[in-house]
Design a protein around this nucleic acid. Sequence first.
RNA 1: GCGCCCGUAGCUCAGUCGGAUAGAGCACCAGAUUCCUAAUCUGGGGGCCGCAGGUUCGAAUCCUGCCGGGCGCGCCA
Length: 580
Amino acid sequence: MKGQIRELIATALTALRDAGTLTQVPDIDAIHVERARQAEHGDFASNIALVCAKTARMPPRELAAQLIDCLPPSVLLDRVELAGPGFLNFFVTKQALYSVIDEIRNAGAAYGRSNDGHGRRVLVEFVSANPTGPLHVGHGRGAAYGDALVRVLRAAGFAADSEYYVNDAGRQMDILALSVWLRYLELCGVAIDFPDNAYRGDYIRDIAAKLFKLQQQRLVRAEIDLTRNSGDDPDRHLDDLIEHTRSVLGAEHYLVLFTLTRDELVADIRSDLHEFGVDYDRWFFESELVESRAINGVIDSLLQSQHVYESEDALWFRSSAFGDEKDRVVRRANGNFTYFASDIAYQHNKVQRGYDTMINIWGADHHGYVARVKGSMAALGNKPDDLTILFVQFAVLYRSGEKVAMSTRSGEFVTLRELRSEVGGDAARFFYALRKPEQHMDFDLDLAKSQSNDNPVYYVQYAHARICSVFRQLTEKDIDTGWQHQTDYTLLSADHEIELLRALSRFPEVTAAAAAAYEPHQVAYYLRSLANDFHTYYNAHPFLASTPELRDARLALIDATRCVIRNGLWLLGVAAPEAM
RNA sequence: GCGCCCGUAGCUCAGUCGGAUAGAGCACCAGAUUCCUAAUCUGGGGGCCGCAGGUUCGAAUCCUGCCGGGCGCGCCA
């Protein structure tokens, strides 16, 4: 509807230009049409006359009046009023509102979709947590946001793919493998001294148990020496232990240990996210970039173009030339590439795969990386503007009014699994979806758990279940109805019904706006508002106890409402239960 | 110190490229069910949109400076 009104205005503007009243006409996309906030302002309002008044050298109200005269006739509009300093207020006909019911009925699951994206290819990368342990509630926020964004983008006509980047090639993975091996040795009866800075979580013991089950004592070595003192540097001590592990196990068995550790952790993350309703199109492993020598490739290329130089035995990317505070190391003096080097290769890989737009969803602690990553794109001849980096602020957890300290290494955190089992996946996803990502978030665990019935997701789901219940009654009471074939929508004249119809007609605008702004939370707020319109209607009017004609019209209306709620919840990855 | 994010009702948060009288949930108070699910609905109180300037027909929204909170500034990952 909004688009149609925009076209009507464009036609009127063109007519005024042809008549010589206007010298220039704004682009159709620049014509601002919005939903009126108040009923007396009609359904839609436009400030076009206020915007164009200056260039037209004409008082806004006079221009607005001429625009109204030039508007082509339309079945959509009942009347157009001139208001305030020069607003155009559009009043939509009831007939146009009624047609929304058939529109929804015909489109079904496709209602709310658009082709704004014109099939442009978008890659959304999110979560991408290092596979060093279970996901925690912070990752859950990124997952809920990223997945909803992908769904919303697809609904708006973008060819959106989702991807998880797995850092499986660095030192942390070796520390992880070491941690598993040490726990495994414990199971084998070998006395060890577990380092404080290795991974201490219980999940390490689980993987060790699996390793023991598969390998029995095969990864125990007589020459193990874990008592060696590497001095006061705990990091150095870990590195020595890793080196020792490699050497006593040999390459083949180290690979067994390493691969099992990685695969177990990745599988755990994958199933965790799957149960959260998040399934990726691709899991991209950093090790692929190592094995294909893609990292060497981009660094060599940057060396040739002088964007990378050598200093103090290390290789540095000249990111200061691209607005970064300082240059960054891509290959350490010890010959190992940094994670940043992998990131350069990974980002380049995305570009080569032909994406028009790339969206990275990062934790807020990574904002310092923007300049160097965008700089590396520019240095490789790619367009930095094709990459949009969105930040998800941390969810600060509170339990019993106290901040919950979180540390992956120490194993002290609330996992996404715990959250899901305690408040439910639907509630968790909706809870996350209600907040825009850059907003700081206080996540009160006690509130989320103890008052889970207050979570608005139930409010929306209940509306859906209530509608389903009405239709069950229809069957149970064996009511003879032809609502699916013959309905006289003009009987829907109550204020509540008109309000509900208006709300339903708004859904396509909501999905389009949510996609354009990368803000799926708009869908969540819309759903709550729609559910409110429905519940109000439900309480005010009986559906089944009316005359057959009115009953059938109302059934058509709430069936359409059910469809929109279902479509909207789907965009957020939340179920639409038929009974509660 | 520098950079990024945020500051709206008691609490948690919306507020659509600047638009007309700033909204919702929770909490609080008062009500609604012989009828389709009361996980619902109706009504009420509650605001210096952090502060101060600026931009213009118009600012919660844009700009500048302060104040307050979060995060980041490694040859870590």
